[in-house]
Amino acid sequence: MIAQVVPVLLAFGSNLGGRGDTIRAAQRELAAAPGITAFEASPLRETVALTLDGPDMHAPKYVNGVARADTTLTPHELLDVLQAVERDFGRVRDKRWGDRTLDIDLILFGGRVIADDRLTVPHPRAHERDFVLAPWLQLDPHAVLMGHGPVAALLERVGDTTAPFSEEAAT
């Protein structure tokens, strides 16, 4: 049986430790993982931390980016790989929307809609998150978020509070 190759979009975030270095290292690990090919990452952006109560100017700022790739993994196999990489980089899931060393979200899995107890795709809040939309637009100026429309129009609607992140200064 030949495995189907499916395009995916991943979103990355970090606001603890060496934020940019952590994201880039995690991306290298994923790009080398079995079942993942054609990995292409966006430039990184920096933004204010978003909590359940809204933006938190006192919390460490986030660095965010996205990557597109192809996979032969099933959605849940890919989720398992993403969560293993998060754990490798010290991710602790003790507070919803809390500070974290690494967060990796599966935004799109081909044209599939998935909704179960472990996974919701397309990501239910991607259309309202400038820290997903802005780097995605840099990676692909013609990007479309399934069910919501062109990424450029979505970003214009929500506004862009992100700023370029200088990876040279971070190292």
Rank of each mutant, 00 (worst) to 15 (best):
L82T: 03
A153D: 15
F165H: 13
D116Q: 03
T37Q: 05
T120Y: 07
P124V: 10
T37G: 06
E40W: 08
G111K: 12
R93K: 07
G65L: 05
A25S: 12
H58F: 12
T22N: 03
R118V: 07
P150H: 15
P141Q: 05
R112H: 15
V81L: 14
P43A: 14
A152Y: 08
P60I: 11
A153I: 09
I2D: 13
N15M: 10
V63C: 09
G20L: 06
A126I: 11
W136G: 10
V151N: 01
T74D: 02
A163W: 12
Q138T: 10
G18S: 14
E29F: 08
H148C: 01
A69G: 05
F131D: 00
L30R: 05
R24K: 12
T22G: 06
V5T: 14
A33R: 07
D116G: 02
A38C: 13
K95W: 06
E29M: 09
L139F: 07
D53C: 07
L139W: 10
G98A: 03
P124T: 11
S166Y: 11
L106W: 01
T71H: 01
I36M: 06
E40L: 10
P124A: 00
L44T: 07
T47G: 00
V113A: 07
A3H: 08
L108I: 11
K95N: 09
E128N: 08
D103P: 02
K95Q: 15
L133W: 08
V158P: 06
A152G: 14
R96W: 05
G18D: 15
V144P: 03
S14V: 03
A67V: 14
I107N: 10
L52V: 13
D103G: 05
V92N: 10
N64Q: 04
A143V: 03
E168Q: 15
V132G: 01
L102I: 07
D116S: 09
P150T: 12
H127I: 05
E128F: 06
F39C: 00
N64W: 14
W97P: 04
V81I: 06
D70T: 11
M1E: 08
N15W: 15
T101E: 03
V8I: 15
D88K: 14
L50F: 00
V85A: 07
D160N: 13
P135Y: 09
T51L: 00
V6D: 02
G54V: 12
V48L: 12
A126K: 09
A84C: 06
F39N: 04
H58M: 09
G35L: 02
A49R: 01
F39M: 08
I104R: 04
A134K: 01
D116F: 08
A153W: 13
L154Q: 02
D116A: 09
E156H: 11
R125Q: 13
A143Q: 02
E156F: 10
D99Q: 11
N15V: 12
L44G: 05
T47L: 03
I104G: 01
E128G: 02
R100V: 13
G111H: 15
P150S: 14
T101R: 05
A26L: 07
V5W: 10
A169V: 04
T171N: 11
E168Y: 04
R125F: 15
F165N: 06
Q4E: 15
L139D: 04
P135Q: 01
P60W: 11
Y62G: 00
S14I: 00
G20P: 07
D21C: 13
T120C: 14
